[in-house]
Amino acid sequence: MALTLDDVARLAKLARLAPSPAQQATLLSQLNGFFEHVEAMRAVDTRGVAPLYTPLSAVQEVQLRLREDAVTEVDQRELNQRSAPSVEDGLYLVPKVIE
């Protein structure tokens, strides 16, 4: 099943990208080209196979390591905001947020 220009536009919006109509057309053909390569994979029978979300779980039980509940961070606001595009009174500024 091939994608349409509408799909490309929808995906771009979701990803907060705004390709030009020309770019969208190119992307459409490239994406459809890509998903042709992928079709072979969809045919494989994977019933009863558990997904491998993290590699080592192929050979051992991998479980989440937990942190003790302790405050280990100090205030580094100045350092952290060194590369910020727009800051005032320690706040990051963005165009009005409308809820």
């Binding site: 942190r67 509940d69 302790a70 405050v71 280990t72 961070e73 205030d75 580094q76 606001r77 952290n80 905001q81 009174d89 320690g90 706040l91 990051y92």
Partner: peptide, 29 residues
């Protein structure tokens, strides 16, 4: 009611000056 955040070692105390309790992890640096 934890002392630190769920995925970082920043304090969860309420009412601190803006972004003084936002560490590199909380800011998604």
């Amino acid at each position: 009611s934890t002392q630190s955040k769920i995925f970082s070692g920043s304090s969860t105390a309420f009412g601190a000056a803006p972004n003084t309790q936002a560490s590199a992890v909380d800011l998604a640096l």
